[in-house]
Structure formats: C-alpha cells, structure tokens
Design a protein around this nucleic acid. Structure first.
Lengths: 209, 209
DNA sequence: GTCTATATTCCGATAGAC
DNA sequence: GTCTATCGGAATATAGAC
C-alpha cells in the first residue's frame, strides 16, 4: 500500500527517500491555509526546495495528492466501522462510537488536519471520486448513529454530536486551549447523544409506514 | 438591438435593467454548487446569455461579486446586532437572539444561500477583506451570546447553538424536508442555550482572576 | 450595455538531460 | 529523483466598436 522508494541517506540535513511524505505534509498545510485551488504546485515545490517537475515524479497529478490524503481518512473510518459492526449492544455502541470517533480525530494530529482540509475545501472534495467515497463514509457514520424510527429531532441531535467534534477547530478559537476545548466538546457530544435518547422517549416515532 | 428601449420593456422574456441583480443570482448559484474558484466568469456569462465583457461592466472584478454578496449578509447581521444592543435583559436577549438569527437565516432564501456560499468557500471568504469583516461579525455574535465568566463547556454550547442553525442544509439532507429540519434545529438550538445555562449553574466559573 | 477581439498571466503537465 | 525548459490552455481582465 505504502510501497514507496526506500530511504537512502541524507542531503544537507534533509532526509531523502521520504519526499513523497514531505510533499503530502507541506501540501496539506497549504491546502488548509490557502485552499487547494489557490495553492499552486510551484508554492508546494518552493517550500520543499524542489521544482514542480520533481513533484510529478511522486504524484502523477495535483489531484492525486488530495486523493492520498482522503484515502488516509477513509481507512481510519473503515477501521472504526469494522469495530462498530462487531458490537452486540447498539445503544452502547453508539455512545462508544462517538468517543472513539473523537479519539481518532484528536489523538493523531494527522486525522484532524485531513478533516480540516476536507472542511476547508468542500467543493474540491465533492468534485473528486475519492471525496465522494469519503462522503459515503460520513453517511455510513450517520447510519450507525441514528436510530431508525426516531423523531427527526433525535436523529438530528445524533448527527450534531459527531458534527460538534469537528467544530472544535473552528469554534471559539479564543476560548481555552485546543486540548481543553476538545475535552469539553466530547463531553457535549456525549450529552447530545443522551438528549437524543431523551427526545426519542418523549415522542416515540415519526410514523413513517 | 432595440432602437429605443421601452422603460418597462422586455427582451426575449427576460427583464432588462436588472442585469446586475441577475448576475449576482446566477453567480451565487454556481459559487455554491461548484465553488468560487472553480466557476469561471464564462460560465456565469453563458448561463445569462451574456459575454464575459458584459459582466465587467457591472462588476469591476470577479471578487467584487463576492463582496456584494458578503456585504448583504453583513448588513443583515448588523441589523440584528443593533436590536440586540437595545435589549435590557441579557438572558432574554440571548434566547431571542438565537430565534431571530434563525428567522433571518431561514425566512429569506437569500440569506441562507449566502451563508451556504460562505460555508462552501471558506478559503475564498477568509482571503477577502469583506470576508474578514464578516468573520468579525460572527465573533461579535459569539460575544453577544457568551456569558463572560462561564465555564468553557457552557460557552461552547452557546456557540454551538448558532452553529447548528447553519448546519441545517448540510446535516442529514435525507431526513425530513428542509422546513421540518429547520424547525427541529431551532428547537435544538434553543435547548442547547438552556443546557448552557444549566452547565453554568453546575460549575460556577472557570476561575480567570 | 453589450459585443468582438485581444492582452497578459499563470497554471498543470510533459519531455528529456543528468 | 531532480533538474531545465517549455507546451498548451484557460482564466481574469481590458480596449474599443456599436
């Protein structure tokens, strides 16, 4: 899967052999900060001390850099889904799902960064096949969280629970430090799930059939 | 084409004299659907049955179309702030603020569309001076909503209340129709504000002094 | 107000040497 | 693996006729 060229030593203090990874890192940074469409390959190359042509050795096209980032996020989500499908107790699974979703997002800066990229470049992501596969994963996450015949309010609350974990970066950047904010947001997300349970109990079902 | 254009004249079924407004409408549609950077002025012109050059008669630059949209949203928010500043009871103001924010967003499709544009083109908006002025307005909205020495969880909840109103479009597009969803989300937003009050009572203050 | 025609710039991508 | 050099194209924007 990763394959890639083998490490071969150093040059002027910079590791060679991991150029592909470094391209992805720098590109991700710029794509988040300035946007994919507003970031030229020349900027990426300049920041790495390379030329555009060198980038094309590692990625056949600009979009392939994005693809590789999105696939990384997809893999992380698929792992989470695999766990979820093995859980016997749905109610318990839903709570723990939110917790694990948050952990996966927050513990590795990488996943959080990619999610930030997705949030900051929605039009690019939705135009890409890989992006549409990621969108399908998000729908799958919602499916796992939502209880079928629950009232609309309860269902929206469950979606909002996931949503607010992602909001950690955008929301109130001035309030507390990032770690504090993330802890607080997970708490809110879990409480939102509970309030969905409550809303479901108050109004039994939206009567579809 | 027409020798002497009548004051209320039409041409091939299309109103003349409101070209500027029609440019903004069409551009907004395309900017939301495909993204600002991925929408060329040729596409906008084609859909209007005009040429690129004609657009430049009405807007000196592509970015000015965006500016005019953002200013429209800023004006709507400023009106809301003016009302908020005249309210004597802060707690009551905060609740009603959320309600009015939702009304302003939902009642006119226009404001909702512009907000969608902002959400779908964050990198463009944040790169523009007008976009940064809009961001300042959003910070102002948060200031109005947040109670100074409240615990972090309570403050985040209040921000989330506003946030979830915007989520109406993205969130659970399959669930219910848009109107139902918006009603439900306003209810959730108001409940989130209440739970912030609750959280504040449970843990008095984050000890700043 | 809208057109045709064009200036200008910059981007993604390729060819081929080393 | 990285470079130099360059192609082809599309995009924003402008000039000037009507």
């Amino acid at each position: 899967m990763t394959g890639g060229p083998a490490p071969t030593g150093r040059r002027s203090g910079l590791r060679t052999g991991d150029t592909r990874a470094r391209i992805r890192d720098v590109a991700l940074d710029l794509f988040v900060a300035d946007g994919y469409d507003r970031t030229s390959l020349r900027e990426v190359a300049d920041r790495l001390g390379l030329t555009k042509a060198a980038l094309y050795y590692h990625f056949p096209a600009k979009e392939d850099i994005v693809d590789s980032l999105i696939e990384e996020r997809i893999d992380a989500l698929d792992e989470l889904f695999e766990w979820a499908e093995q859980q016997p107790d749905p109610a318990r699974m839903r709570r723990e799902f939110v917790r694990r979703y948050a952990t996966g997002l927050y513990e590795t800066g990488r996943q959080a960064d990619i999610s930030r990229f997705v949030a900051r470049n929605p039009t690019v992501v939705s135009a890409l096949p890989s992006g549409r596969r990621l969108a399908a994963r998000m729908r799958r996450a919602v499916e796992l969280l939502v209880v079928p015949d629950e009232p609309l309010g309860a269902q929206l609350r469950r979606i909002l629970a996931i949503f607010c974990l992602h909001a950690g970066d955008l929301l109130g950047e001035g309030l507390g430090d990032e770690r504090e904010r993330r802890v607080a947001l997970l708490e809110i997300a879990l409480e939102t799930m509970e309030s969905a349970d409550g809303a479901a109990r108050r109004a039994p079902a939206t009567r579809p059939n």
